[in-house]
Design a binder for these strands. Structure first.
Ligand SMILES: [Mn+2]
Ligand SMILES: [Mn+2]
Ligand SMILES: [Zn+2]
Ligand SMILES: [Zn+2]
Lengths: 124, 124
DNA sequence: AAAATAAATGCAAGTCAGTTGCTTTTACCT
DNA sequence: AGGTAAAAGCAACTGACTTGCATTTATTTT
């Protein structure tokens, strides 16, 4: 089954929401709030960016991820791990192994991981 | 070889530094800046807590870690991974496997990982 | 098509972690 | 004890993120 739209889930399709959905349809890499805000050349308030991202995440149209500098990043595809260059920010997907399937004493396990390094261009 | 003291590394042994070293000698779990600050009942300025932690980390007497709520945590033992209860904060060490030893395109690899869950007491 | 209405936006102000600049105090050396 | 550089304390700042509230907008109802 494919993703339900905002309207199908009882949310209005507003101009800010449309702008941010368009942004993600053009972009495959994860993006921070500020990257999104700047990409829209401040056509919408930054508070609205936060609120729209919360809604889009709520309805499963985007996904949150941990990041290096700004802590919240979002992407159009479900969360998996990345390696990020600490100099230029180049980011590359990593195959997602399933760590820790049998941890004792804890339930409802979640994990967040950031792997960073220097890409060829930045390594000297 | 064992750890060099502050003095041996050219740093003064001041009252705030002593207090924080004592704090870590009593505590095995990682602690955030605020936890440290509150534990000292504000005997020293919070800015000083930040600066002392930076020094102690610099000289290798404590180690920084990523965390769930506050992003900076510190511990007396070298960085490894933990699982943290999202309700009460109970934290437990995890064996550190050496992920990602052969990543392509990136050098100087570092990783940060937080694993959280609900401990037995908080799981209902 | 216009009015009604609830939901969403924008703006201003607030919170909270972490930083910076600067003055005063302190550890340590002579 | 006195001198001095390093460190502490204080106040103000920054930047991410949140909250409250008045205004605007998407969609429903006439
Ligand atoms: Mn994964
Ligand atoms: Mn590890
Ligand atoms: Zn790079
Ligand atoms: Zn718990």
């Amino acid at each position: 089954m494919q993703k339900k739209s905002l309207k199908e889930q009882g949310y209005k399709l507003t101009k800010p929401r449309q702008l941010i959905l368009d942004f993600f349809s053009r972009r495959s890499q994860p993006a921070s709030v500020n990257q999104i805000y700047r990409a829209l050349k401040a056509k919408i308030d930054k508070v609205t960016v936060y609120r729209v991202l919360a809604v889009l995440q709520e309805v499963g149209l985007i996904f949150e991820e941990p990041g290096e500098k700004e802590s919240l990043y979002y992407a159009a595809k479900k969360q998996h791990h990345h390696i990020v260059c600490r100099v230029c920010g180049l980011s590359q997907c990593l195959p997602c192994t399933h760590f820790f399937s049998k941890i004792k004493n804890f339930s409802a396990i979640e994990h967040k991981m950031t792997i960073s390094g220097l890409c060829k261009k930045c390594a000297h």
